[in-house]
């Protein structure tokens, strides 16, 4: 990807964002029956996203898991697969991290974290292996199986947290016991922790591997030209399964950084599934246009929209679901470009 393509990608995303904000503004104006409502709403959104150090902290906290699910989905996309199972993999990974995190009694804190992070990656990878395997060996479409497995993940994690893994003291607010160690905070004042660094490093590492490593090369070749890859002796099925495993592991890590920090959870709540970071990861990857490095700004944007939405709800009385509408329009605007003239510029 050269400089001109990068520029084209950025301007494409910027135009999509502008269109989305414009249409979202119309929705707000109509919903509030007030022509000035969009301006009030958007200034509150901006303030809530980047208007203060606390706003930045909120934005970055939300960006952190999105970086991991976003890059996870991007890896699958590079191999020509759509990992719509990110949400399920995130939940399974999160529960695996929480379980190891509270069960590893007597283990030094740094080791608890390493074990918990590893467990989340393995959990996410296992959950992603199922659709990948079923696709390659049985011809089942990964989108269908992954969607169904999302439901399974939702109900299995909820069941486990409500029963064997339940913290007996948690009462009606069912959750696992708190983890024995948390990721170190990056600031004494604000709730941003080392999970953010892990996430950024993961994005950079995966981006470099995709561009430069033999693994990344084979993944891209299979994704963009499976017939030629096959004729060149690249084991196409294996490469696809490997990409899906990597994708699931990254999404699983996304779950771990959510439960291993001071915010938001420190333990795994029964209603963890549906936090939306998995599905938003799909949006992040699509907005990034398949570029792994593009996940960095893309995740930041979605993190900012999410944080700003709370403020908008609070200050301007505009329901935060409106931001979901903006995000939806954004995805439609990007996806339309993404699906139709796929990679044409490259």
């Amino acid at each position: 990807m050269n400089f001109r393509n990068l520029l084209a990608g950025i301007s494409r995303a910027a135009i999509a964002l502008l269109v989305a904000l414009l249409l979202g503004g119309i929705v707000i104006a109509v919903a509030q029956r007030d022509a000035t409502a969009p301006i009030k709403a958007y200034s509150a959104l901006l303030a809530g996203a980047v208007g203060s150090p606390q706003a930045w902290a909120n934005t970055l906290s939300r960006t952190m898991p999105l970086l991991l699910t976003g890059i996870g989905v991007s890896v699958a996309l590079a191999a020509g697969l759509f990992n719509i199972g990110a949400e399920g993999q995130l939940a399974v990974g999160g529960l695996a991290a929480a379980t190891v995190g509270f069960a590893a009694k007597g283990v030094p804190a740094p080791l608890v974290l390493i074990l918990a992070l590893t467990a989340s990656a393995v959990g996410g990878a296992v959950w992603a292996f199922l659709p990948a395997y079923l696709k390659e060996k049985r011809g089942a479409h990964e989108v269908i199986t992954a969607i169904l497995l999302n439901y399974v993940a939702q109900n299995v994690t909820r069941y486990l947290v409500a029963n064997p893994l339940k913290d007996p003291t948690s009462g009606g607010n069912q959750r696992t016991p708190e983890v024995l160690a948390t990721l170190p905070r990056l600031s004494s004042q604000y709730d941003v922790h080392a999970g953010l660094i892990i996430a950024v490093l993961a994005v950079v590492l995966v981006a470099v591997l995709l561009a430069r490593s033999v693994w990344g090369y084979e993944t891209r070749m299979v994704g963009a030209g499976s017939g030629a890859a096959e004729a060149a002796g690249i084991p196409v099925s294996t490469v696809r399964i490997r990409a899906m495993l990597a994708s699931g592991a990254l999404c699983g890590l996304g779950g771990a950084v959510l439960v291993l920090g001071v915010v938001p959870f420190k333990s795994f709540p029964a209603d963890f599934y549906g936090a939306g970071y998995g599905f938003d990861g799909l949006a992040v990857a699509l907005l990034a246009g398949g570029s792994p490095f593009g996940v960095l700004p893309s995740a930041l944007l979605f993190g900012a929209l999410g944080a700003g939405a709370e403020q908008m709800d609070f200050d301007a009385g505009v329901p935060k679901q409106i931001v979901a509408v903006v995000q939806g329009i954004l995805i439609v605007a990007v996806a339309a470009r993404f699906v139709l003239p796929r990679w044409r510029k490259k």
């Binding site: 963009a224 030629a228 890859a229 490259k346």
Partner: peptide, 8 residues
């Protein structure tokens, strides 16, 4: 489809 990956 068999010899080259055109986008790479």
């Amino acid at each position: 489809h068999r010899a080259m990956v055109l986008t790479q």
